[in-house]
Simulated scan of single mutants.
Amino acid sequence: MSRTKIEFAVQMTCNSCVEAVKKSLENASEIKSVDVNLDTGSVVVDSSLSTLDLQKRLESTGRKVAVRGYAGSIAAVSIIEAGDKSVQATPDVCIIDGTVDGLKPGPYQISVHEAGDLSRGCESVGDIYHPDKTCSQRLYGNLGTVKAEAGGRAAFRLEDDTLKLSDIIGRSFVIAEKPEENREGRRLACGVIARSAGLFQNPKTICACDGVTLWDEVSKPRL
């Protein structure tokens, strides 16, 4: 499985914090390297684990954690009503790394749709994206299915060698009920796919949208 580098902001105040962070990421064969910077509160992890898995490990130290950026200049994020999802790209594959909450247990379809128009919710995002130029036998934007567990959470990390990130920025990501007999399932949640910050490109400590600190923003409950 392909590895990616993810930068986290971690609330650290001393060297013991640094040691606790490093210990939380030990003994995982999927992690190649960990770089912790106490001065900037930055933790960069090179691994094949999902963002959620890494964040859980870091939060197990009792410290507040926020995702800050992804390696390279080609990464995107889509914030949706039911959770959040990020897309990263390596030279050969597109990695869809996400967590979706608030679902009923069972399978769901995830896909990229034609437009980033949310004026009528998920009804105005168009069909599943399939450009005329593609030779793929599948619908280009059809990413397959994910499963929500008993608690209503679907956590996934998929690798796709067809999707190109440059093709989907500005379009939308949709979660739908599993389709039946060639009919699209009911769309449950959606969000516009926007470019994400790269490593060390997001130094913000105050959220411009509401003026609260990064750590207060992390502590806010999700609606």
Rank of each mutant, 00 (worst) to 15 (best):
S2Y: 06
T4D: 12
T4P: 05
I6P: 00
I6N: 03
A9R: 11
V10C: 01
Q11W: 03
S16H: 15
C17G: 10
C17A: 01
A20G: 05
S24I: 12
L25K: 06
E30V: 10
K32S: 13
N37D: 10
L38R: 06
G41D: 02
S42H: 14
V44M: 04
V44K: 07
V44G: 01
V45E: 02
S47T: 09
S48D: 08
L49W: 01
D53L: 15
D53A: 15
L54G: 00
K56C: 03
K56Y: 01
R57D: 04
L58C: 04
L58D: 01
T61E: 06
G62L: 09
R63N: 05
A66F: 14
G69M: 06
G69H: 01
Y70N: 01
A71I: 04
G72F: 01
S73A: 10
I74T: 12
S78I: 06
S78V: 11
I79K: 15
I80A: 00
G83M: 02
D84A: 14
D84I: 14
K85F: 10
T90K: 02
D92P: 14
V93L: 14
T99F: 07
T99M: 04
V100P: 01
D101I: 14
G106W: 11
G106K: 06
P107Q: 12
Y108G: 02
Y108F: 12
Q109A: 08
Q109R: 15
V112I: 14
E114C: 04
E114R: 13
G116P: 05
D117R: 05
L118V: 07
L118F: 02
G121H: 06
G121N: 04
E123Q: 08
V125I: 15
G126R: 05
D127Y: 07
I128Q: 00
Y129G: 09
Y129F: 13
D132M: 08
D132Y: 09
S136E: 15
G141C: 14
G144Y: 08
E149T: 15
E149A: 12
E149P: 07
R153I: 10
A154C: 14
A155E: 12
R157T: 10
R157I: 09
E159C: 09
E159N: 02
E159K: 11
T162Q: 15
T162H: 15
L163W: 05
L165H: 09
S166L: 14
S166P: 13
S166V: 12
I168K: 03
G170H: 09
V174G: 00
A176G: 07
K178R: 10
P179G: 03
E180S: 15
R186H: 05
L188C: 06
A189P: 15
C190T: 00
C190V: 08
V192M: 10
R195D: 00
R195V: 06
S196K: 12
L199Q: 01
F200R: 11
F200K: 11
K204F: 09
K204A: 11
T205V: 13
C207V: 14
A208L: 12
C209Y: 09
G211F: 03
T213P: 06
L214F: 10
D216I: 07
V218Q: 04
S219Y: 00
S219R: 10
K220I: 11
R222Y: 08
R222D: 08
